[in-house]
């Protein structure tokens, strides 16, 4: 019988296809790993309802575990508790930054209209002089920013709480 610890290690080798520096574990979408004899059940939760990468990650988890010799793998999608960007690991946040995506910051209440956008440091040059271009970016989970200092546009992994 395989140990749960081992499965978690294997899951560290499954990457998010849309943010390929993050593993499913870094992203915080793996809720639990349950082992019953030869049967392994992995519960994952979607980041966004319509995230098109979920199906792919589900398949990749099965493929990776099969590759490791575990054949009876079941991936279940659970909605509760709902994912939040707080579940992205510290290591994950560092990896995001190194990849050029600003990691989530604590954000003000979204019910305040025209609120001053929060300061998101530029992941390229580190400047805090940046501006929000749009709350909706290249994928459901990102906003679009630009650095006023080095002028680079960049993605910001926006807060979901």
């Amino acid at each position: 019988m395989v140990e749960a610890k081992k499965i978690w290690q294997y899951l560290e080798e499954v990457y998010d296809p849309e943010v390929p520096v993050l593993t499913v574990v870094d992203l915080g979408i793996v809720q639990s790993v349950d082992i019953d004899g030869e049967r392994v059940e992995v519960k994952i939760t979607p980041s966004y309802s319509g995230c098109p990468a979920m199906k792919r990650m589900e398949e990749d988890i099965i493929e990776k575990l099969n590759e490791k010799g575990i054949n009876d793998v079941h991936v279940e999608l659970v909605l509760s508790p709902a994912w939040t960007t707080d579940w992205i690991s510290e290591k994950g946040k560092e990896k995001l930054k190194a990849y050029g995506i600003a990691p989530p910051q604590d954000e003000p209440d979204k019910s305040v209209l025209f609120a001053e956008p929060i300061v998101v440091p530029c992941p390229k040059c580190g400047s805090k002089d940046t501006k929000l271009i749009s709350q909706f970016g290249s994928t459901a989970c990102k906003a679009h920013y630009q650095c006023n200092e080095c002028l680079e546009p960049f993605d910001y992994f926006k807060c979901l709480k």
Binding site: P46, Y48, V78, L79, P81, T84, K110, L113, A140
Partner: peptide, 22 residues
């Protein structure tokens, strides 16, 4: 299940409402 879908969707809907209100 309704409560779970509501919790998930609410987080997204807050962004939508802010966008359309503005």
């Amino acid at each position: 299940q309704i409560a779970a879908i509501a919790a998930k969707s609410l987080k997204e809907t807050k962004y939508h409402l802010k966008h359309s209100s503005e």
